[in-house]
Design a protein around this nucleic acid. Sequence first.
DNA 1: AATGTGAATCGAAAATTTCGATAGGTTAAC
DNA 2: GTTAACCTATCGAAATTTTCGATTCACATT
Lengths: 321, 321
Amino acid sequence: MPFELPNLDFASLRTLRLVHELGSFSRAAETLGLAQSTVSYTLARLREAFDDPLFVRQGQGIVPTTRCSEIVAQAGELLDRFEELAAPRDFEPAVASLEIGISCNYYERVTILPQIVRVLRCEAPGIRLKVISSTVQGKGQLTRSQSDILLGAVQIQEAGYFRRSLFKEDYVCIMDPQNPLAQAPLDLESFVRAPQVIVNYGDGYRARFLVEMETAGYQPNTAMEVPSPASMDRILLGTDLIATVPRRIAQTYQGDVASVACPVSAEIPIDMFWTARTHSSAPHVWLRSLIATVSGREAESLQDARSSDTEDTHAFPDQSF
Amino acid sequence: MPFELPNLDFASLRTLRLVHELGSFSRAAETLGLAQSTVSYTLARLREAFDDPLFVRQGQGIVPTTRCSEIVAQAGELLDRFEELAAPRDFEPAVASLEIGISCNYYERVTILPQIVRVLRCEAPGIRLKVISSTVQGKGQLTRSQSDILLGAVQIQEAGYFRRSLFKEDYVCIMDPQNPLAQAPLDLESFVRAPQVIVNYGDGYRARFLVEMETAGYQPNTAMEVPSPASMDRILLGTDLIATVPRRIAQTYQGDVASVACPVSAEIPIDMFWTARTHSSAPHVWLRSLIATVSGREAESLQDARSSDTEDTHAFPDQSF
DNA sequence: AATGTGAATCGAAAATTTCGATAGGTTAAC
DNA sequence: GTTAACCTATCGAAATTTTCGATTCACATT
């Protein structure tokens, strides 16, 4: 064996430092509230570990060996770093520097993230968001630690995930303002007949209102399919087409298109999910709280659809930006 | 109390690191040759110390919290530094960097140090010598850690000092080569009569041969007193003066002055002293060994004039320089 | 010599760590 | 679904380490 790597605890190093500082075993013991024999025993262990006398008697008192002084200098740094490491993390948004991963899709990127980003740039400029498309794999991304937070109209049954409802979304029908259907509330019959642009979101996902329509025995008059609701206004303007999109998406086209309530009632619950891995991390707690607050009032945290776990409410900043 | 600073040992941090690496308590226990419950208990202590779950269950196995990964990264550095600190110091002259303090006077600076410096520059260029004048305070300088090594014709009776004899020195009389006294061995009567330059070394120190003369009832014919034997040749040349100086000092004037044996026999033992503080330090051991080897053959180490402590003999380099 | 100061050592008590066994909880297979 | 496999958590007992008070030892000062 080349050399037996010794084990010591940080308290021993603190004792060593104190003895070095005070130049006395007895006074160190007194300061620490221990018996002198205890300090003596601790030093015996240190001597063993470092294979050096560390302190030698010199007349009245003791004198550190050169090696001892080296060790004390190094040990001081170790202690400082350890104590910093062990200190409770008081998270300060203003100075924190870290990356947080968010899985979501177009909808959340358009409706939730812009507000979050504005607050972050102002209050926590050191937090970097890494947003990835969740498609239908959001849960797996969470468990594989590819992201820390999953946002979306997802339903996770399994245990081991935390959930917080953000808000409920419903659908509106949008169309060219000249479209006759825009002049009055839309009835179901007209809605079914109207030529629609259907958003399929790729990956075989089917919008909730389509599922509801089907259940009720209706088929939409599909004139066109697109993978994303982005720039839907550009498509619709000047045509007789209508599109059924989440209300908050419709608001991003505001002014350019007319919107009316969708006669097929379908609510989409938008939730936030995370795992125990980040549950107790101060920055994550803070960001989740921010997301919940920014998203609306219906804040409510549940784990496994059982234990409620209300997070600290984020105090929304009243400063203007 | 603001926060209880926790105590941990380095073995716990190693366990943490291993669990993080292997992703399993059981496998870490197996690797360490411990029971799984032991690792579990160690993690309970770590969780307490860091106030964080550190690892959370995730299906099959466990996943580290974000805080845990931070801690492991930091702890890894702490462990590396600690292990480096605890590793046996294998002293390598070629790369060692440190300062060693030497107390001595003119005699040793002229006779011993030049050879030491040449070896150091060649073999241990990182060792910086800090030479201070010992005058008559050499012992105090040692005990106050103002120097690490004391060289000189000193006699320390007290315990607690290590000593190694370097060599014995005797006196020669030097003079202008034209001086009639230089032509034959000097007899005591001529010596006492001859006009001398007496070196008083300041500080009331009296050369050994003067003490011997006095004991024998003679007084030198003092023509002049100087504080140091430096440049004595410049003083003597062209005069009828003689000076009595240690033989190795006389050799530094070689060629310029004539020297004959001093009829008053007086041996000066030149010793090296140090304390327990540096006794076990590898670089100091090495340097002391070098000094002893360079100084002559009579190497012999004694503590308290009792316990002999022969140091490693320094293998004098046979390379030319 | 006697005295004082401070570290080392000793035996017993206290606290901590370790172990084996077992319980609790989740995943994969049948 | 039930079982089997595989984790970590927990428990009580045993082993080890740490602490303490008292004493001894070493050195320095009076």
